[in-house]
Design a protein around this nucleic acid. Structure first.
Lengths: 334, 334
DNA sequence: GTGAAAGCGCTAACAT
DNA sequence: ATGTTAGCGCTTTCAC
């Protein structure tokens, strides 16, 4: 990769003509009559003409090598089973572009998270946005990272890092409360039962129900298929709930499918509510009442946090969720 | 950013201990007793121990500056109104990771495509995958790119570039033919009427209908909202079609919503078929019969084409689409 | 062969 | 304040 010599400068005119577009600073310097053109935006000898105005823009790779960091951020998101992440990732990309940053997106399972973490560090990214959960054995990897890290999930945040997440506990309470105030008593839960998911806690706290209460809390993967299967087993049980709280829109859509399959109607026979409010919720049939995560706000603030503009405290910052009412919830029939 | 000096090497053991993880080659060279350790993978003096095995991995930024190209590819996709692109982009990322490439994704409207094109070129990406349509005034920009470019849409491919796309014309024929063979005669079209969309051509050719035939072809944006609005206007017209061909799953889901809104049933009153076969089609209610784009194959081959492994001919390569039958299509009632 | 040296195009520390 | 120089950590060429 040898550098093609630029044509000799045109004698006479200066600022009017742009002799070598996109050349390295050296060429501009030579042209201006000095050995090197130190600052990237320095004005050339004869006055106000900065070399950027002459059509120059610096080589980001060289900037990165010299300064030790690129203008790229890494984003590690769960594998896109959940369309919510597609929307969230887009919002993050938009917010990053606004700050002149590019984003390298990695879809990782929790197994491959540690790999991507070190890969992104090697790539010398400006910072990493981590939206997956780290298995215990990988938390050390994250802690020893030299790259700035911001977490995007409320689930077990690493201490010492800023974490941006919506308040899922409060969102779950809101959803469950909405169903209760419509008159529902038997409200099933669909989601993650294995850990200490705040959605599960929100549901059970609002209902005043013990987590061991049988026949109400059902394990579901955060996918449409997960919702489908969980809902099928709910409907197969002897006593059917009058309402269902799904931990995500994807789960809710799967559940809707299962309910329809059983020749039941939403909301006539069963009310359905979920969390996230991704576009899918609005366009399901019927439109699913959902508790919205403020994705754009979180995206903007996560980028700001990575850049450390506000010197945000290194703790979990929770964003309130808001109920978006649609037609999947109604009072129980009898 | 001055380099922290590494601790003096441990005398004695060599290959067994890894004295300075992730240090630059120079350190290894000094350790081995020479001035520079030329090749990144050179084996050190004492034999078979390559420095990579000592825990070294090269700095990609320095590699990029030196070699003139990063191991990153750029991906320009339309703004994610269409969830199809979310799936496609994920497939592309997976295929890229398999080759050791990262991807910089840019969501662009056709207005901002030229900007991203030159931005990615400046970033010294290894190649660019372009999935948006270029307005005429920007085709020159794409042509003069020094970066390798592969197109991902069949719509007006640039000549001189390889273009990977599914055969939308054949897909549209297949869809329309499926409806015809079920006995439908009045089959409406939902999609792009403004250009020379192959989907429109496939539909009209199969039907033997003139494009000017009134009341059958409807303009719809490629979003759920677009489908909703177009379908509403179809249903508002005096004579309702017995089947609808939607140019994308997103359009179809919007259309489904409008049909439901009008208290009509799919497929009892109206059959619905679409293109893409994104996960949404499977989980709509009823499941939407859709003609599948071979997304994984195209993603794999697009990456290979960028790397120029097969020395693919610089033309449009079309991939066959396949019908996936679900429950949104049936014979007309009477 | 194997080892040294000259870039790549910047930034930052350093002289003047 | 200016203008110069020494890296950043590689790849490539060149000399031995």
């Amino acid at each position: 990769m040898r550098h093609e010599p630029y044509p000799a400068p045109h004698e006479g005119s200066r600022a009017d003509c742009i002799p070598w577009c996109l050349g390295p600073t050296r060429d501009y310097a030579a042209w201006a009559g000095c050995v090197s053109a130190a600052a990237g935006d320095c004005s050339i000898k004869d006055g106000a003409t900065s070399i950027r105005k002459l059509g120059y823009s610096p080589n980001p790779v060289a900037q990165a090598l010299s300064s030790g960091s690129t203008q790229v951020i890494g984003l590690i998101v769960p594998d896109i089973g959940n369309p919510f992440w597609a929307v969230y990732a887009s919002a993050i990309e938009a917010a990053a572009h606004l700050q002149g940053l590019d984003v390298l997106r990695c879809s990782a399972t929790s197994d491959s998270t540690a790999f991507f973490l070190s890969h992104l560090e090697e790539m010398k990214v400006r910072g990493i946005l981590l939206a997956t959960d780290l298995p215990d054995e990988d938390r050390a990897v994250a802690k020893s990272l030299s790259t700035r890290l911001v977490q995007l999930s409320s689930h077990r945040p690493l201490d010492g890092t800023v974490s941006i997440a919506s308040d899922l506990y409060q969102g779950a309470r809101q959803a469950t409360y909405h169903l209760r105030s419509l008159g529902h008593a038997r409200i099933a839960f669909l989601g993650d039962l294995s850990g200490d998911d705040p959605r599960l806690a929100g549901w059970s706290d609002t209902l005043g129900v013990s987590l061991q209460a049988p026949g109400l809390a059902f394990q579901a993967e955060f996918t449409m298929r997960g919702g489908l299967e969980a809902m099928r087993s709910i409907l197969a049980a002897p006593e059917t709930p009058t309402a269902v709280f799904a931990s995500s829109d994807a789960i809710a859509i799967g559940a809707l499918h299962a309910i329809r399959e059983a020749r039941l109607d939403v909301p006539a026979h069963i009310s359905l509510i979920s969390l996230d409010d991704s576009p899918e919720a609005a366009f399901a049939l019927p439109g699913i009442t959902s508790v919205r995560q403020p994705v754009e706000d979180m995206a903007r603030d996560a980028i700001a946090a990575l850049l450390d503009e506000q010197h945000l405290e290194a703790r979990l910052h929770m964003y309130p969720m808001t109920l978006v009412q649609r037609s999947s919830t109604a009072s129980p029939a009898n």
